[in-house]
């Protein structure tokens, strides 16, 4: 692909690109995925993060991470970054809270995802 395509298109802008055949995959959302979706909607209703900010937040993850992370994983990481930028959360706060949440689950039951 010509470098100019990367200059003129951000990672989400893939309309018209070549790609493989459409595999008709679908899955019922896991509970946390549904909570993540509800969180996205609530953040939009409350005018904290709107749909366009969310999309741009995903785009800001960069093509490599966008390619590696599934859909709701991209969303939650984008939300974290946007909330840091808006100074509604700090990275330290989030790290400490995540450690607290982790600690609610016994370590011996698995290594997590």
């Amino acid at each position: 692909m010509a470098t100019q395509d990367f200059v003129s298109r951000l990672p989400n802008d893939i309309g018209g690109f070549e790609a493989g055949s459409v595999a008709r995959v679908e899955h019922v959302l896991e509970p946390w995925e549904k909570r993540c979706h509800a969180l996205a909607d609530v953040l939009d209703f409350k005018k904290i993060i709107n749909t366009e900010e969310k999309r741009k937040g995903v785009e800001a993850l960069g093509e490599t991470l966008i390619g590696k992370l599934p859909y709701y994983e991209r969303w939650i990481v984008a939300f974290a970054n946007i909330l840091f930028t808006k100074e509604l959360l700090s990275p330290t706060e989030l790290a400490e809270k995540m450690a607290e949440v982790e600690a609610r689950f016994p370590v011996e039951s698995g290594q997590g995802g």
Partner: peptide, 24 residues
């Protein structure tokens, strides 16, 4: 992925979701 039998231990991104929701 974490294997399916480990559903009681949340993965990294689920932990992040819970943490962000609770902080907000």
């Amino acid at each position: 992925h974490a294997a399916i039998e480990q559903v009681d231990r949340p993965g990294y991104y689920e932990v992040m979701e819970t943490a962000i929701r609770e902080l907000l």
